[in-house]
Amino acid sequence: MSKFQFPESIASRPVYGTLEPRPGKAHLMIADAEGAEAILDLAAQDAGLMAKTHIIYIPKGTDFAEALRALEPAQFYEGPSYAASVQRIRKVLGDAHMGLQVYLAGTEGLMGQAMNEAVSAGIPASAIQTEHRGSIARRMQCVHCKGITEDVTTDPFVCSHCGLNLFVRDHYSRRLAAFQGVCIDAEDPGNVPAPVELYK
């Protein structure tokens, strides 16, 4: 699968790389949807890696789970949603020993949230890799009501909490793992342009 190339943007917007196998006794891979493909690519590069790997995977309607299971990782967990998986992610990170390598792959929302968990668990940034795969959907915070709308794929979009029509900014908060959404028709109420797919 080809990877989406994000155009160059402002300094707060995260950039993602390509996962590569790193030496280490323990590896934690957290992925959603097409992020599975990045893990499959990793496994193909290093046959010994999976025996030391714990995979936490959220399929989001895709069918990569079996392929991942077939890699025979040391531990494999399939979660129905990120929210359902986060307690487990925290436990695994909390139990981690020095030298744990963390690999995050899939949507920006998944990577941003899991990155926060890893950093607050004290994993050094140098031990965390990311790779974007699949949907270009964004996790958006409404700057007005503070509600988070997941998986936004159009600009503008409707805040799922307060119902305002919001435009999608590139300004990004790592703490919130979200981009900022701002009212689009504040200066001309009711004049809301038709939603366009992001990056189209």
Binding site: A11, S12, D170, S173, R175, L176
Partner: peptide, 22 residues
Amino acid sequence: WSLDFDIGMNFFEWHAPVPLAH
């Protein structure tokens, strides 16, 4: 600009939206 959004950011991140100056 929003403190609630920007809190925790570094100098380059919170200035990200400013044009030309970077």
